[in-house]
Amino acid sequence: MTHFDKDKTMRISRMLGAVRLFVITTFLIGATAASATATAQVTLENSVQKVETFVNEAGEPQRRLVDADSVVPGDELRYTITFSNDGGETVDAGSVVITNPIPDETEYLDGTAFGSGTDIVYSVDGESFAAPDALTTVREGVEAPAMAKDYQSIRWVFRPALEPGETGNVSFSVRLK
């Protein structure tokens, strides 16, 4: 019975979650509609793959991207965010700013963030962003240079203008804790 009740409670709370999500979605659609006077619209597509190490025919370890259908602690995941201008107007140069918080239960892998034509900055608090050299964190009461695993969020600033129909992508890797 305890299990049943717990399940029920979980299901209800999940339903509430779903309702909340629905409300937010509606709001976003509404907001998009309101700004539709400007016809430019940037869309984002987020995908995940697993980085797998295998031994090639020459007996050397090599890395490849595979579906993230099966991931376990210690695996490396690579996220790719594709951005597109699906509207009819040019998006201003230097104005596309993509922010991706590091997913829960993962830690960022140093040097893996990439994005052609972008400047990349990081944050240890999710609010202020800077280049790695400028980031510090407090470790055992002492301010120290931040390490990759301290990063909470990554931000890419796309330098060129994004013309209608144009697409770009940025990516980064994490390790599942």
């Binding site: 976003l28 907001a31 998009t32 309101a34 700004s35 400007a38 430019a40 619209q41 940037v42 869309t43 984002l44 597509e45 987020n46 995940v48 991931v71 995941l77 996220y79 965010i81 951005f83 509207g87 107007e89 040019t90 998006v91 201003d92 104005s95 596309v96 700013v97 993509i98 922010t99 991706n100 918080p101 997913p103 829960d104 239960e105 993962t106 994004l162 599942l176």
Partner: peptide, 21 residues
Amino acid sequence: ILNTAQASFEVGGIPQTPVLS
């Protein structure tokens, strides 16, 4: 494990509503 990105952008100097992936 969920991952969601957000983008802000401007058209003609006017900030547009940010979008989520």
